[in-house]
């Protein structure tokens, strides 16, 4: 019970801090001090106090996008374990639900973009749904590997397996999966090299260009939702890489949270040292991620 409360408190409060850490890392690389780590929270609170402006073209669909951007990752977060050994909700087959919740959110984010009737947002929606087609199989190949290692179909046991047996019996596969998932994480959260979250007005944008017409609380929901998504998808990676199986819950939670912040630093480093890819190169990188995870699976088929 206590663990569930802690789980909820962490998922509600920590995600925007990851964005703060990414910002600080990038600032350090640029030789600046950077905004405080709490800055994303200040931004969100400011947005929630602002008034909303809606396009005359839009319908109710326009508002479903922001709502699902928050509700879907929150629901998905209930299915993955953070520091504890089990997620608040866990049943056989929850991994499929986990993946499809993000798809539900994607459906309505893209539909909300088309609802504005703007050419830019249509462009962003088309790219978002197209690139997801390549990211999704990569995610599932990785889940197959974890399912094969753990012999179960629930995320809670699957994500505990790497540090009980997985890294010893199937280390090579896990390395490949982690590499593939890291690419998926960057793509799904529209980070460099796929997308640049700092520039709204370039024709090469994917996710950011879909939310041009959202304002005030709706925009706040979307920004909060994208930090949640980064956190929840990052959990898959961190639970695979960082051991959280110690007997003391405190140690586990500290290990998990420091892993998450380390992940934010790594993302920040990637954003500082790599330029954004040309649009036509993006499918190639995603197919590579897919193949990496596929090789991880092939190693396990014998």
């Amino acid at each position: 019970m206590l663990e569930t409360v802690l789980h909820l408190v962490v998922v509600l409060t920590v995600p925007p801090l990851l964005l703060g850490v990414i910002g600080r890392t990038k600032a350090a690389f640029a030789g600046r001090t950077g905004a405080p780590v709490l800055q994303p929270w200040y931004d969100l609170l400011r947005l929630f106090r602002k008034e909303m402006v809606l396009s005359t073209t839009t319908t109710w669909v326009f508002l479903v996008g922001p709502v699902l951007a928050v509700v879907a990752p929150l629901a998905a977060s209930l299915l993955v374990p953070f520091g504890g050994s089990r997620a608040p909700v866990s049943f056989s087959g929850d991994l499929v639900l986990f993946a499809y919740l993000f798809a539900l959110s994607r459906f309505f984010t893209a539909a909300a973009a088309l609802d504005t009737g703007s050419a830019f947002e249509g462009m962003g929606a088309a790219r978002e749904v197209s690139f997801a087609c390549l990211a999704e199989p990569a995610l599932f190949f990785g889940l197959l590997v974890l399912g094969r290692i753990s012999g179960t179909l629930s995320l809670s046991s699957m994500l505990s397996a790497p540090w009980t047996t997985g890294w010893i019996t199937a280390g090579a596969s896990l390395v490949l999966v982690v590499a593939g998932w890291f690419v998926v994480l960057l793509a799904e959260n529209s980070r460099i090299p796929f997308d640049d979250p700092n520039t709204h007005l370039e024709l090469t944008m994917i996710h950011e260009v879909m939310v041009l017409d959202h304002s005030g609380p709706a925009l706040g929901l979307i920004l909060y939702g994208s930090s949640l998504k980064l956190f929840v998808l990052g959990t898959l990676l961190i639970r695979t890489v960082v051991p959280c199986g110690a007997s003391s819950p405190l140690v586990n939670w500290v290990a998990f949270l420091s892993g998450m912040f380390l992940l934010a630093v790594v993302v920040g480093v990637v954003e500082s040292v790599i330029a954004r890819l040309r649009m036509i190169r993006i499918p190639q990188l995603l197919v590579t991620a897919c193949l990496l995870s596929a090789f991880g699976m092939i190693l396990l088929i014998r």
């Binding site: 909303m52 508002l63 005030g216 609380p217």
Partner: peptide, 19 residues
């Protein structure tokens, strides 16, 4: 939550899509 957001948006200003 959709109902809540719609209530929030009820008094929202309306303008053309920003292009």
């Amino acid at each position: 939550s959709l109902l809540a957001v719609r209530r929030l948006a009820r008094g929202a200003k309306r303008d053309g899509t920003w292009s």
